[in-house]
Design a protein around this nucleic acid. Structure first.
Lengths: 127, 127
DNA sequence: ATTGACGTTGACGTAAACGTCAAGTTATTG
DNA sequence: CAATAACTTGACGTTTACGTCAACGTCAAT
């Protein structure tokens, strides 16, 4: 059974981004879809990459950082300094994420408090 | 004992931002320090606001969103529609934060896996 | 053959969040 | 009192991540 492929607008719909966005990611070397004539053809692997890009963005990575991670990941299996560099970057990002997570917990806690105060001020109807 | 105050560069040092940044926040109506002649004088309350701004940013709020929250918070004690709007915004943001938190957990998990693979590939030295 | 949907490549525009001068004011310190 | 440091207000520049045309290609259906 042949590999499943996708068009640019299929991916755009599925992930709720514009086609412009997807082409822009290609410009930034984050995607490299095959071509059939002029048309771009996206493989499962391309689709996964797009998912990773979008998740990377959601956690606050820049497109450049995402690209660096891709590059490292692609090249990392070879020599040892590469691997060590990869680990270093991941550790740093892990720590940042952990701090961000703590921040979010704090804010969520405060939001909860403020909200219950508001609800009390409005009487006991559920909101 | 008189209220403690701060200069712009004291705050800049303390929070590791530039004075330009602090003035920019004032431009955006996020801060309203008192003046002594021309010079800006920051109160404890201003300092707290700055802390809130920076924490808001760390969790991915735009300056505009931060300002809206400030405005609502300042005005919220009065009428009921204000309060309801406040609650609505907080709920929406709470949900976004929760999703972001889930994303971060996923990525942290994957980072852990990738890293332990890397470490295995490098032999059993601690990294 | 034309219409419509979908695709393509430029090129320029935009919003957010500051950075970076320039040119002047005020305070203090040797 | 002159230098230096710290402050001020513009005004313009910069980066990121796209949006928005314009102008054109391609293919299927009418």
């Amino acid at each position: 059974m042949a590999e499943q492929t996708f068009t640019i607008s299929e991916l755009a719909r599925e992930f709720d981004v514009t086609t412009r966005t997807i082409r822009f990611y290609e410009d930034q070397s984050l995607l490299e879809p095959a071509r059939e004539g002029q048309r771009r053809i996206y493989s499962r692997r391309d689709r996964v990459r797009l998912m990773l890009i979008l998740r990377g963005k959601r956690i606050g990575l820049s497109l450049l950082e995402i690209r660096e991670l891709f590059d490292l990941y692609d090249a990392a299996s070879n020599d040892e300094p590469q691997l060590r560099e990869f680990i270093r970057i991941l550790s740093r990002k892990e720590q940042q994420l952990q701090e961000q997570l703590d921040d979010i917990r704090v804010v969520l806690g405060e939001i909860g408090q403020i909200r219950s105060q508001c609800e009390k001020a409005l009487g006991k109807q559920a909101v």
